[in-house]
Amino acid sequence: MDRSMHIHQQIPMENLPAPKQLTRRDSLKWLGVLTAGLTLPLISGCESIAISTAKLAGKWPELNLEPITGEGYGTDPNLVSPPDSPWPLTMTPAQRALVGRVADILIPREGSTPSASEVGVPDVLDEWISAPYPSFQADRVELLSGLAWIDQESQRRFGHVFVEIFEQQQLEIIEDIAYEESKSNLRYVYMANVFDGLRALITIAFFSTPEGIRDLGYQGNVPIVGDYPGPTTEAMNHLDGLLQELGLGEHTYS
C-alpha cells in the first residue's frame, strides 16, 4: 500500500473531519495512520511471508512486550485544559537517550532554531508508546523494536550501543535505513519502514512546537477581523505563473 497517500488523507471535516480536520471524517487523521503504516510495511506480494523474510534477513529483534493497559483520557476529557500527563511514561532512560539522539540526527539544531530533543520531542514519543490504546500499543512494539535494532546494529558494527559511538558511525547506520532505496535491500527493508514511522512522528512532533511552527512558517490560528483576505499578491502572482506553466492560463476560475 502507498503509505504516503494514507498519511495525507485529510478529510474535509464533516463528519470530519477532519477532519478535519479533515477529515473530518474517518479516523485517518494524520498520526493515527502511523499504526497502519508501521504494521504493514511496503512489501507487496504475500505479505506475511514477505514480512517474516525481511525480519529474518534484518535480524529483527522483535520485542515481546506485554501491552500497557489502563485508562485513557476517556470519552469526555476537558478539551480546554487538556491533561498534562494522561498516563505514566514508560521508556527506560536508555531508550529515551537513544530516541533523543535519533531525533537530533533527524532534526538538528539549525542556527537559533533548536533541535528536536531541545523542544521535548522524546517526551512525545514516550507518551505515544505509553498510551493505553491498542493501536498505540501496536506502534510501541514496532518503535521499541526499531530502537533495539539500532542498538543491535551499532553493537554489531562498532561494538557499542548507538549513543556511545562517534557521530560519523551513527550516520553510517542511519544512511542505510533513511532512504527509499533502503527498502530494496532485504536486510534493511523492515527497519527502513519502521524508520519512516519514527521520522514521521518526530517530524510532526517537532513542527508542532512553537519553535517548529515558526521554522515551518505557518501563519494561521490567529483571528482575523473582517473578511478573510485570501492569498497575498505574491501568492497570486506565483499562481499565475503556475497556471501559465501548466497550460491552464485560459481556464482561470472566475
Binding site: K20, R24, P210
Partner: peptide
C-alpha cells in the same frame, strides 16, 4: 488550543476517534 497542548498531539484514539479536540 494547539495540537501540542493535547495528548498525542491530538491524534485520534478509540476515546476520541476524530482526534482529541473534536
Amino acid at each position: 488550543q494547539n495540537p501540542r497542548e493535547a495528548p498525542l498531539r491530538g491524534a485520534p484514539t478509540t476515546d476520541k476517534p476524530f482526534g482529541f479536540y473534536d
